[in-house]
Design a protein around this nucleic acid. Structure first.
Lengths: 136, 136
DNA sequence: AGTGTAGCTTACTTCAAGGTATGTACTTAC
DNA sequence: GTAAGTACATACCTTGAAGTAAGCTACACT
């Protein structure tokens, strides 16, 4: 994060602008919003599903257990707005809409998936740690 | 109020819980809880800070601007319970407590950081996508 | 005529995350 | 004696994220 470039340089001149080192630690950093979308409860699941390929709205809704239509629509819109998801609507009745990942979307999702996969695979270790700490 | 929730019904049916590829898509999967802790608003920041090395409570609080003491304590406890963070308290006055990552914590955090770094570095692309979609 | 369908939108409600404010235990410094 | 520092706990309250439910479109089927 703060590694890419130096500490605050020219920022000093401005008024209320953040004098932060890494902007991740400043509350009004836009990275935070994107991170929130990508790591949101439903966002993670939708993204990883789309890594397999194009899916229709109803397919996604059916696959992700417990997600309401409202949340699916909302999640997809946020991810589309960020340029991670591509929406392709066909002018037919009943409606048909296909969702897929953009190139950018695939890049983030790969990283998201790495994280998710690690957690799934290491869940036993976490459970063990939990049990151990619970005893003490 | 009338309908407690629709999810519960589906869950009851199967004893052999998840025969899915990843149980991430089933609502009651413990992976989600861990994922939520790790990718939570404050969790991400605390973890990445701890990747640099041991920090005291007050140091963390000071570095992550906008985080209340309550949230810091809560976040640290969740991460400690999951076995990602090690808490070391010294019996001195005034109190001194040091927090660091466990081996497991370092593994997850590296993945979290990869994701966070990607987002920070590709923020311009996201902004561009946002502007483009906004026009249409 | 009525029903179903896919992909939403909108209105209403609920619940928990998170903010604020305070207390505590103990010591050192003023 | 009182203020300040440290690492919390606890109670209270606000905000917003997410659930529920209904409506909408426009055609095709019965």
């Amino acid at each position: 994060m703060s590694g890419s470039n130096g500490v605050a340089k020219e920022v000093v001149a401005s008024k209320k602008v953040s004098r932060r080192k890494g902007d991740l630690y400043s509350a009004q950093c836009p990275s935070r919003g994107v991170l929130d979308h990508v790591t949101s409860r439903w966002g993670v699941l939708v993204l990883i599903l789309l890594l397999d390929g194009t899916h229709r709205f109803s397919e996604l809704r059916h696959k992700v257990e417990g997600m309401s239509e409202k949340m699916l629509a909302q999640t997809l819109q946020a991810l589309e707005a960020d340029g991670f998801v591509l929406r392709k609507a066909y002018a037919v009745i009943p409606p048909k809409v296909e969702y897929s990942l953009t190139a950018m979307g695939r890049e983030v999702t790969e990283r998201v998936k790495m994280l998710a996969t690690w957690i799934e695979q290491n869940l036993p270790r976490v459970a063990q740690a939990r049990a151990k700490l619970g005893r003490e």
